[in-house]
Amino acid sequence: MPVRTPHFPDLLFGSAARLRHWEGALMALLASHGYRELHPSLVLREAIPGGALRFFDGDDLVALRWDFTMALAGVLARGFPLPPPRVSYAGAVFRRPLQPWEAVERFEVGCERIQPEGESSEEADLELAKLLMAIPGVLGLKSAILHMGHAALVRRPLEAEGIFGDLAKEVVTALSRRAPHRVKEVLDGHPSAARLVAHAEALLSELNGPGTLDALAASPYAELLHGERLHMERTLRSLLPILPPHLELRVDLAEVAGLDFYTGPTLRLWAPGAQQELAAGGRYDSLFPGLGRPWQAAGFCVRLSRLLDLAETRPDLFELPQ
């Protein structure tokens, strides 16, 4: 069994100052676009997932806040008859690490764009993408890459073939590894194996600019995914002319991280050579209906702890502080 030592890093002077500066600058950016801060309690007394840090407070099992989006969704669904359209947050979340080098305490800044059911979500998605495009500049990153994906590119073909549960998870894991041969192994003997393997190969064939969308034409599900393709094309047409210098936009058809949560377009921010994404987000329209509210939502989260690590290990990726 792997032995994992919990990693609780202290932030010394430089990192602490950087955290404070970045948090302030990002919250100011969000505020200037109409996002108002909500600060859910650090201690949760509700249904708690396995990855949370838990302890007993007297007889009560409580957990530390493990995710802002979930915590905020609880606050909003309980206390608001109509959704506030723009919400921002900043602070720490506490999670058991999946990889040994991940810290337990993680600092994040993020935002949520919430709408009543039936309202067009395309403008909200664009608004979030534009905001995310401004983040590298605010952080002083010399260059960055924005990956655009769409959860439905994998979800819809699986649903169309009646693949759910563990088998769907295995297919998604194989795609997450970008291993079409694993998709083939997992689906060995399934009636839709040939179609889904061809689809996986189409998704994994390119990782590049707007031309990447053409790879979808080779998929047996090209027609099923026509709407998603048009949506991505429209988004690209809107974003490419206003792309800031030193930010590259790539289409990543095989983006499946968080597929059990995301329902629509997804965005991930990378820096060249960074080992982990620095910000991530997308549309998650099933979250609020699950809490009894007919609202749609999308948002993103900037992972400040990863940025602090990157600033220590790869200072060459950042502009010198003014």
Binding site: A179, L207, D252, W270, Q275
Partner: peptide
């Protein structure tokens, strides 16, 4: 035998790794 890649390196610098 399988060819494996670091997720970060592959996704953030595909022109170098691919």
């Amino acid at each position: 035998a399988r060819l494996v890649a670091a997720r970060g390196a592959y996704l953030s610098e595909p022109s170098r790794i691919r």
